[in-house]
């Protein structure tokens, strides 16, 4: 009897699950189909006409780059300073945002004895900082400060502080409290406990997230350049604005951006593997 009831229950649960899965899949399919047809309608160029033109533009710039011959490499070199500026935007933003994030994380985790009343306040603050799209802050600051890399840097740093702060405080939540208690038994102050009990435990994970963020920020600063924040994005906007004939320059920027992003991705994933691997071994 009991077994039969159990079987009934399991079967009905399975049915319900299958129903939910089916509904989920149907929902996703409906969103996809209706979304694509709707957006195809809203787009100024349709999908089918666009498909035939899809390779036109890449083809055009590849041909122009090919015609440029060896001078193409000169063009790439020519844009290195602009790329460097974008990297600097990302670098400074990640450093400043990361430093800010450490402070925010230390102020918002119960596990590291943050001051209680501050915790919810700082958490909400980080949520808001994360929610602000970089574009909005960048455009606002460009309006006030003029076209320069600094607005982009501040915008990216602001967002980074919120995003990294959340990840850092999650790391803080998972640390071992024994070293903290040991130090407080010796009469260590809060700062000393953070420095000697918390930091050594979290440093590898912090650094790993930091590098991941650097990767993301390089992309973000390249894009922000396009709305007037300097760096490679601005150069790209200029060469694209020239239209036909500047395809070789555009191609040079594309190649440079691609190579840089790949390089940073590879280096950062290698370093992250080492960092997290090292912490795992101990």
């Amino acid at each position: 009897m009991a077994v039969a009831a159990l079987e009934q229950e399991i079967l009905s649960m399975r049915k319900r699950r299958q129903l939910y899965s089916l509904m989920g899949i149907l929902l996703v399919a409906a969103v996809l189909v209706s979304g694509y047809s709707k957006s195809n309608e809203m787009n100024s160029g349709g999908f089918l006409q666009g498909l035939s033109k899809f390779f036109d533009y890449p083809g055009e710039i590849v041909v122009e780059a090919w015609q440029a011959g060896p001078a193409f490499f000169g063009l790439i070199i020519q844009y290195v300073p602009a790329m460097l500026e974008t990297l600097n935007i990302a670098g400074v933003a990640t450093l400043l945002g990361g430093a800010m994030a450490v402070i925010l994380a230390m102020a918002s985790t119960r596990n590291v004895d943050s001051w209680g009343p501050l915790i919810p306040v700082v958490r909400r603050m980080m949520d808001i900082m994360r929610a602000f799209p970089e574009l909005i802050i960048a455009l606002f600051l460009i309006f006030v400060l003029g076209s320069s890399p600094v607005p982009a840097m501040i915008a990216v740093a602001f967002h980074t502080a919120g995003a990294l702060g959340k990840l850092f405080s999650e790391v803080n939540e998972n640390i071992d409290r024994k070293p903290i208690e040991g130090l407080s038994a010796c009469g260590a102050s809060w700062l000393q406990r953070i420095r000697f009990a918390v930091m050594p435990q979290v440093a590898p994970n912090y650094l790993s997230y930091f590098l991941l963020r650097l990767e993301i920020n390089v992309r973000a600063s390249a894009i922000l350049g396009f709305v007037g924040a300097g760096g490679i994005g601005q150069e790209l906007r200029r060469t694209i604005g020239w239209g036909k004939g500047a395809g070789d320059e555009t191609a040079a920027i594309f190649v440079l951006l691609f190579l840089t992003i790949m390089l940073i991705d590879q280096v950062s994933s290698f370093l992250r593997g080492k960092l997290v691997g090292a912490s795992r071994a101990h």
């Binding site: 979304g35 809203m42 787009n43 160029g45 999908f47 790209l236």
Partner: peptide, 15 residues
């Protein structure tokens, strides 16, 4: 940028 060239302005491009 490539998709804007091919498909013009709109949500399809961004998607």
């Amino acid at each position: 940028l490539i998709f804007i060239r091919a498909f013009g302005l709109g949500p399809l491009t961004g998607a």
